[in-house]
Design a protein around this nucleic acid. Structure first.
Length: 220
DNA sequence: CCATTAATTGGCA
DNA sequence: TGCCAATTAATGG
């Protein structure tokens, strides 16, 4: 059960403290494409990602969806209600791949911060990092063409869950679908499909069946 | 298998 | 690039 140590937040805790933290929440398994929370509902729990990929997205009445953020191992979400008074989920949370999440009630989360100041400091750093990521992503969405944004996304996935293969190729498995990528970048699925095929032609990436892509780190 | 969903492709704005 | 339509591929019973 000490999977918690692996996610970064609790590394400098003593064993008994770690047990104390484990007792404050529960480890939960999710299947792929399973809802974790719904936008607008009362915020009852926070989630630490132990394993897997989750997205938070907004959706309009036509069903168009925009992925606000991606969470992988070591991330904590949602990001509201901890240092402000917001008490509803700001977006829809849904797993992309099968996931293992450490789930902790809101009240316990505040208790956790009070009991362990070191974790509260990490939270501040975490927010700063996420804020920076969001700003970079937004500037890319305005300044860069979709191809560049797609490559950035693939690089990020490679860095987070990629497996090194032979000579400069990294395998990204357990991938988002192309629709997900489209939703993240803010373009249509057709565009993503065409851009990916372009990357394949240019030998900057290659496909290994659905959901698995090799990317050439050097050329990207 | 069939039904459903995802991805591809071509045409046109 | 986006949107639409027509196919083709893949996935899950």
């Amino acid at each position: 059960m000490s999977e918690l140590k692996a996610i970064g937040w609790f590394q400098n805790l003593k064993d008994d403290e770690l047990k104390q933290v484990e007792a404050m929440g529960i480890m939960k398994q999710y299947r792929a494409k399973e809802a974790v929370f719904v936008q607008g509902e009362i915020l009852t729990h926070y989630f630490f990602v132990v394993d897997g990929l989750i997205h938070a997205y907004h959706q309009n009445r036509d069903g168009k969806k925009w992925i606000a953020s991606l969470f992988s191992c070591g991330d904590l979400f949602p990001h509201t209600g901890l240092v402000d008074e917001e008490n509803r989920y700001p977006a829809n949370g849904e797993t992309i791949t099968p996931c293992t999440l450490f789930m902790i009630r809101r009240e316990k989360m505040h208790e956790l911060m009070n009991c362990f100041p070191s974790i509260e400091r990490q939270l501040t750093q975490f927010f700063a990092k996420k804020s920076q990521e969001l700003m970079n992503r937004y500037s890319d969405s305005v300044l860069e063409p979709a191809l560049v944004q797609l490559v950035s996304l693939l690089k990020r996935l490679a860095q987070q869950s990629g497996v090194r293969a032979t000579d400069g190729w990294v395998l990204i498995s357990a991938m988002m679908t192309e629709q997900d990528m489209a939703g993240y970048i803010g373009v249509t699925p057709e565009t993503v499909s065409r851009l990916l095929n372009r990357l394949y032609r240019e030998k900057r990436a290659k496909s290994v069946g659905r959901g698995k892509i090799y990317i050439n780190v050097e050329r990207c």
